[in-house]
Simulated scan of single mutants.
Amino acid sequence: MLSDTMHDRPPRIELCQPPEPGSGSVEAIDQQILFLLSQRFGLAREHDQVALQNDDARTAQLASIRRKAFELGIPVSLVTDFWDRMLDASAAMREQARKT
């Protein structure tokens, strides 16, 4: 079983290669998602996003994400839960980076 602590080490962007464009398979899309997450966590670790540590800013960002998920016709609760956890993981990675 995987650990819930997904921020045990920094993202390894150098190991991620962009997926082949245009294949359209679910597996290719999954690889794209992983590649983008690696990029996002790398940037979040490097940049201090103080605004997102503010509850009002976080609430506003999550509301924006919910609206976009609804517009795209994807499960709003799933996206919101994912985004909330991603913001927590990003904050933990930034904190970890500060300590090293």
Rank of each mutant, 00 (worst) to 15 (best):
R40Y: 14
R45N: 05
S64A: 08
H47R: 10
A44S: 03
L52H: 04
L37A: 06
R45G: 05
A44L: 09
A63G: 09
N54Q: 08
A63H: 03
Q61D: 06
L52N: 09
D48K: 06
Q39M: 14
H47D: 14
V50E: 14
E46H: 04
L34G: 14
H47K: 12
G42D: 03
L43A: 02
Q61R: 12
G42R: 03
R40S: 14
T59A: 10
A60L: 06
R58E: 06
L52A: 03
N54H: 11
Q31S: 10
S64F: 13
D56C: 04
Q61S: 06
Q49M: 14
I33N: 05
V50R: 15
R45C: 02
E46M: 03
L34A: 15
N54E: 04
Q31R: 08
T59L: 08
F41H: 15
A57D: 01
E46G: 04
G42Q: 06
H47S: 12
D48V: 11
L37K: 01
F41Y: 15
S64I: 13
Q39G: 13
L36M: 11
A44R: 01
D55E: 12
L52V: 08
L52E: 08
A60K: 13
T59M: 07
A51W: 08
H47W: 02
L36P: 09
Q31V: 04
A57N: 01
A63T: 07
S38E: 04
A44H: 00
I33Q: 09
Q39T: 13
Q61K: 10
Q32T: 11
Q31I: 05
D55R: 15
L62V: 04
A51S: 07
L37R: 01
S64H: 11
D56Y: 08
R45H: 02
Q53G: 12
L43V: 05
L36I: 11
A44I: 04
R58G: 03
N54W: 09
L52Q: 09
L36W: 12
E46C: 03
L36F: 13
Q31N: 08
L52W: 06
L52I: 07
Q31T: 09
Q49A: 09
A60G: 09
R40Q: 14
G42M: 02
L43R: 01
Q31L: 09
A63D: 08
L37Q: 01
A57E: 01
G42Y: 03
Q49N: 05
G42P: 02
R45Y: 00
Q61H: 06
A57M: 04
D56H: 11
A51D: 12
A44D: 00
S64R: 06
R45T: 07
Q32K: 08
A60V: 05
L62H: 00
Q39E: 13
Q61I: 03
N54I: 10
E46N: 10
A63R: 02
N54K: 07
Q39F: 08
T59E: 07
L52P: 11
D48W: 09
D55K: 15
R58S: 10
A60Y: 02
L34W: 06
A57H: 00
V50Y: 13
L43M: 03
E46A: 13
